[in-house]
Simulated assay, not measured.
Amino acid sequence: MRNLQVVLGVLFGVAVFLFLDYALPSRTTVRVTNVYNQITDLGANTIFYASADSGTVETADGRRDIRYIATVQPNGRPYVYRNEDTGWIWPPYFKYDSANLHAIAADSVSTAAEPRWMNVTSYGWRISWATIYPNAISMRQVSGPGDAPLNWPAMIVLGVMGALLLLLWRMWNQFRERSIDPVVARADRAIGQVDQRLDAARDRVVAEGREARGRYRGWLDSWRGKPRR
């Protein structure tokens, strides 16, 4: 049972970490190389794209017209973002300006000879084999490839979550001290009293059994007759 609890705790911790890693905003400094629209087939990876009611254009056969922002990281590796409105559905970024962001990205295209570095705020993962892209939320120009602005939105969310967890922990401790611990203490006392009664009853039965055996032996001796002196 203890091992099962440990396994469940580890799985829960991993699930919470993955959830936060996907949903929380991240900031990456990149160089924009291209912006384009592409008709994309969605399948099992649909959950990693915006909901259909967020204003995304879909064809009659269910394919989706999605805006993409192609970038290159300072280390030379390509990194592609999708640019979709999130609407009022999860995650709650309430993004409705994907067209404006597309225009900003198009105006930020630069070459390796004359780079223009942009810091992009996004959420999600980039998984090439599953055709999953992070969703760009906003971008702004920075002074150079090493400029990494503080990710204060994620820090605020984590701080609020930490405060809520601390509040819930204190509330649980107070509830346990006021409601659960007294019940457990009363149950322990009741169990202890039952144990004492059981021990007393057992001792009484043993004593009565010994007394009964003594009377039985005396009765047998009376029939056998004691040898005279």
Rank of each mutant, 00 (worst) to 15 (best):
residue 179 S to A: 14
residue 195 D to E: 12
residue 169 W to A: 07
residue 140 R to C: 02
residue 136 A to F: 11
residue 141 Q to Y: 03
residue 126 R to H: 13
residue 150 L to H: 05
residue 148 A to H: 13
residue 154 A to L: 04
residue 180 I to V: 03
residue 193 Q to M: 07
residue 209 G to Q: 12
residue 179 S to V: 15
residue 125 W to I: 02
residue 122 S to E: 11
residue 193 Q to P: 00
residue 116 R to S: 00
residue 164 L to G: 15
residue 136 A to T: 06
residue 158 L to R: 11
residue 161 M to T: 08
residue 198 L to E: 14
residue 205 V to T: 15
residue 170 R to N: 10
residue 162 G to L: 12
residue 160 V to W: 09
residue 160 V to N: 14
residue 131 T to F: 01
residue 170 R to M: 06
residue 130 A to F: 09
residue 172 W to R: 05
residue 143 S to W: 04
residue 181 D to I: 14
residue 174 Q to W: 03
residue 151 N to D: 14
residue 135 N to L: 00
residue 179 S to Y: 13
residue 128 S to F: 07
residue 135 N to K: 03
residue 132 I to E: 08
residue 124 G to Y: 00
residue 128 S to P: 14
residue 129 W to G: 14
residue 167 L to T: 08
residue 131 T to Q: 12
residue 152 W to N: 02
residue 146 G to L: 11
residue 139 M to T: 08
residue 117 W to S: 09
residue 125 W to M: 08
residue 210 R to I: 11
residue 169 W to E: 08
residue 146 G to E: 01
residue 146 G to W: 02
residue 178 R to S: 07
residue 208 E to T: 02
residue 159 G to R: 02
residue 162 G to I: 08
residue 137 I to N: 05
residue 131 T to A: 09
residue 176 R to K: 11
residue 178 R to T: 06
residue 137 I to L: 15
residue 179 S to N: 09
residue 172 W to F: 13
residue 208 E to P: 02
residue 125 W to Q: 13
residue 144 G to D: 10
residue 199 D to K: 02
residue 163 A to G: 05
residue 199 D to V: 06
residue 149 P to C: 12
residue 121 T to M: 13
residue 159 G to Q: 04
residue 147 D to L: 10
residue 142 V to Q: 11
residue 127 I to P: 03
residue 171 M to W: 09
residue 117 W to K: 01
residue 181 D to Q: 15
residue 211 E to R: 09
residue 138 S to W: 05
residue 127 I to S: 00
residue 148 A to G: 05
residue 122 S to A: 15
residue 192 G to F: 09
residue 207 A to G: 01
residue 148 A to R: 14
residue 128 S to T: 14
residue 198 L to M: 15
residue 190 A to R: 12
residue 123 Y to K: 03
residue 143 S to T: 05
residue 194 V to F: 01
residue 146 G to F: 03
residue 154 A to H: 01
residue 186 R to K: 10
residue 205 V to R: 11
